[in-house]
């Protein structure tokens, strides 16, 4: 029985490159525990994004198993995968990827509405989340009125909105300067601890590793613990 919110077992994924197949991920096993903030580092092209996509129910592996909340999702079809993403996983992308025509509070409301539980309790959670990422005063702002750091903070709040067990971040600081990067990752670490989530962050910025509990390095399709 797997107790961790997220577990990958012997996952392999290959892509076709011209005539031959190239193994992007080779026999990877990984677990993310509650309350732990894990970082995955590695050079570009090492397979970090593919790893995160498979962990995040965006891609299905060629071989191996992916467990989200002890459900095996490797064989799920699109619609079921969408449901897993909606309820169990919160994403923070490289760019904030906010919906341009929604105000800050509507960004969060949208994910609750998609899940179909926009109620008093969700409304409260929305208020608390915006409070804790320090955007209480920006509730009625559109994304184009926010700074890069503020946008990324909205994205963090959005990732937590549906109360998922897993938080996945794909280079969340790529578009930010050093000071902002620290601020954002510190905020993520704080939220992960407070709300007891299993979080995985892919990054190339080693200065951010001080906020993480565990560090993995991705190299030529293999995941190696430690720097």
């Amino acid at each position: 029985m797997i107790t961790a919110p997220l577990a990958l077992e012997n996952v392999t994924k290959a892509f076709k490159d011209g005539e031959q197949y190239i193994n992007i991920l080779e026999d990877i096993s990984f677990t993310a525990e509650k309350g732990k903030f894990t970082a995955v580092i590695g050079p570009s092209g090492s397979g970090k994004s593919t790893f995160l996509s498979i962990a995040g129910a965006l891609l299905t592996p060629d071989q191996g198993e992916v467990f989200v909340n002890s459900q095996s999702i490797a064989s799920y079809k699109d619609k079921k995968l969408a449901n897993v993403r909606l309820t169990s996983i919160g994403y923070i992308f490289q760019a904030a990827n906010l919906v341009p025509y929604l105000k800050v509070n509507e960004q969060l409301k949208l994910v609750a509405q998609m899940k179909g539980d926009w109620d008093r309790e969700a409304k409260q959670r929305l208020g608390q989340l915006l409070e804790s990422v320090g955007l209480k005063a920006r509730v009625n702002y559109y994304p184009h009125q926010l700074s890069g750091g503020e946008k990324q903070r909205v994205a963090i709040a959005r990732a937590f909105m549906n109360n998922p067990d897993i938080i996945l971040a794909d280079e969340p600081t790529a578009n930010l300067d050093q000071a902002r990067s620290d601020e954002i990752v510190a905020l993520m670490a704080k939220e992960v601890k407070e709300k007891d989530k299993a979080a995985v962050m892919v990054t190339h910025d080693e200065s951010l590793l001080k906020y993480c509990d565990t560090v993995y390095r991705m190299e030529q399709g293999k995941l190696i613990k430690g720097r």
């Binding site: 965006l58 619609k79 969408a82 909606l86 309820t87 996983i89 994403y91 919906v99 341009p100 549906n162």
Partner: peptide, 16 residues
Amino acid sequence: LNQFGVLKAIGAKNIF
């Protein structure tokens, strides 16, 4: 299309 991709990634279904 990119926006739809993001929305799908955070769990939006086609019908939505």
